[in-house]
């Protein structure tokens, strides 16, 4: 995995886009600090979906890099401006991701739990707004780009 460390003053943060499975425990425990009493974690996992006669087999993510890396770090700065947090970690996986596997791990360490919970929620919402990453659901009967409804599935073709 390729880690990209970003160290704004006094904070230690990690923003990374990686291929291959996320080592969730390491990402979380790396945020433990003596000045923080709360570490909130959000893990996004790929969800199985099914309709009559078809089901999702896996997901595939792609990113516009390095813009996506920069946008993750920007979210970290936005959080630091809004809450008293001491560390933010966001690691997003790209490439093929099997069902039920983590695709994104967000860890926020803060002195108190309120800020940790709120900031981790903020991080995932912002990722879904501004970070140039896209996912494609690969179904048994074709694929579809989530959010665009473009693809080779019968339902997606009908929309074209």
């Amino acid at each position: 995995m390729r880690w990209r460390y970003c160290r704004p003053s006094r904070e230690v943060s990690l923003f990374a886009i990686v291929e291959g499975p996320l080592v969730v425990g390491e990402i979380i425990s790396g945020a433990f600090r003596p000045d923080c009493g709360a570490v909130a974690t959000f893990i996004g996992t790929t969800r199985e979906d099914a309709t009559e006669g078809a089901r999702v087999e896996y997901l595939e993510y792609e990113a516009y890099r390095p813009m996506a890396d920069r946008k993750l770090a920007e979210i970290g700065r936005e959080i630091a401006e809004r809450w008293d947090v001491r560390e933010v970690r966001i690691v997003h996986r790209i490439g093929r991701v099997g069902l039920g596997e983590p695709s994104v791990v967000i860890v926020v360490a803060a002195p108190r739990r309120g800020a940790a919970f709120e900031a981790s929620r903020y991080a995932i919402e912002r990722i879904k707004q501004v970070v140039p990453i896209w996912k494609r659901e690969v179904w048994s009967d074709g694929y579809v780009w989530v959010g665009s409804q473009v693809g080779t599935r019968p339902a997606a073709r009908a929309l074209r």
Partner: peptide, 10 residues
């Protein structure tokens, strides 16, 4: 220049 569809990370 990049052409960006609605993002769908997470």
């Amino acid at each position: 220049v990049a052409i960006l569809p609605p993002v769908s990370g997470g």
